[in-house]
């Protein structure tokens, strides 16, 4: 309900009413953006800030969750983790897994995207290849893990083919041999992730104006020169953004490793993610698990910062 000022009202009050309305409008104007932000801020607080603060708090407590009165131990868990051989091993494996995955994802994705963008292929051929190439992206991690476990079994299809074509004389233990298990899981990750690059780069390639290539041809540029001086510079923002995102996602890869090798054999495929999981759900050391998770968070935040900076450069 609203009330309308009557003509009998004293002039002072009338003037005061106008003033307060103006004040309300001003407050509303200032508050309006905050009102729009409120749902996001509330959600971010509940879903991100509170859990992160809790995990950081847990990382400084001893036997947190498992005992009712945990003790504050400061950075003890961080010191233990950062100085442990197991962590260094997991970090090295994760770096290898990340770098090789990202580089090969990029090369494969770019190669396939170039092929699908080539005018030398007909529409039908392109559609067939596009469907085939994108298939790995359609499978969930669980299916990918089971599929490749079956294929790479010592008695599996891969070994059968290799032995049939006399490329090997013995059954290779792809996932169980400590010398090759890391390469095997990296290969699986590469297989499952390249379509992301392929589709994004294909979209990028299709967005490059044809005029550039026509002008280059007029100038007598070779195919290689067109690639170096037109295609790659045009795709650079996409490549940087995807490489950083892929690096973040690959660092956090857990399910694939857990379901194929579990971090073994002999810790050769142990990643930061599996290392952290074992702290939490195998030894119930939630304080150490939280510290390890915070370390992964810091690494991810550095990468995220680089990603955001790259995006700013783009726009």
């Amino acid at each position: 309900m609203t009330s309308t000022p009557t003509s009998a009202a004293p002039p002072l009050l009338k003037g005061g009413g106008k003033g307060s309305t103006a004040m309300l409008r001003k407050i509303r104007k200032v508050a309006l953006p905050y009102g729009y932000l409120t749902p996001t801020v509330v959600l971010l607080t509940i879903l991100m800030i509170i859990p992160i603060v809790m995990v950081v708090g847990y990382s400084m407590m001893n036997n947190v969750i498992m005992i009712k009165n945990p003790v504050f131990v400061g950075f003890q868990h961080y010191v233990e983790i950062l100085t442990s051989d197991a962590f260094r091993n997991a970090l090295q494996n994760t770096l290898f897994f990340d770098i090789v995955s990202v580089v090969v994802h990029l090369l494969l994705g770019f190669g396939f995207a170039m092929m699908l963008n080539s005018p030398m292929l007909g529409k039908v051929t392109k559609s067939i290849f596009r469907t085939i190439y994108v298939l790995p992206w359609l499978f969930t991690v669980a299916i990918i893990a089971v599929l490749w476990r079956l294929l790479l079994e010592p008695t599996g299809v891969i070994n059968y083919l290799l032995m049939t074509f006399h490329l090997t004389t013995t059954q290779i233990e792809w996932l169980s041999n400590p010398d090759i298990a890391l390469y095997a899981v990296t290969f699986i990750n590469i297989w499952s992730g390249y379509p992301f690059y392929m589709t994004s780069l294909l979209a990028g390639l299709q967005g490059i104006p044809k005029d550039y290539y026509e002008a280059a041809e007029v100038d007598g540029a070779s195919g290689w020169q067109k690639l170096i001086y037109i295609t790659l510079p045009q795709l650079r923002p996409i490549i940087i953004a995807m490489a950083l995102l892929d690096f973040i996602w690959t660092t956090q890869q857990f399910a694939l490793i857990w379901m194929t090798t579990g971090g073994g054999p002999l810790g050769t495929t142990e990643m930061l993610s599996t290392y952290t999981y074992k702290f939490a759900f195998s030894t119930y050391q939630f304080g150490s698990a939280a510290a390890s998770a915070v370390i992964i968070l810091v690494i991810s935040m550095v990468l995220t910062y680089l990603y955001v900076r790259a995006q700013k450069v783009k726009y």
């Binding site: 476990r149 233990e173 996932l175 169980s176 090798t261 579990g262 073994g264």
Partner: peptide, 12 residues
């Protein structure tokens, strides 16, 4: 012993 012993699971 069946090959792949280091990463074989119960279901295998």
């Amino acid at each position: 012993i069946a090959k792949g012993t280091f990463t074989l699971k119960e279901q295998d």
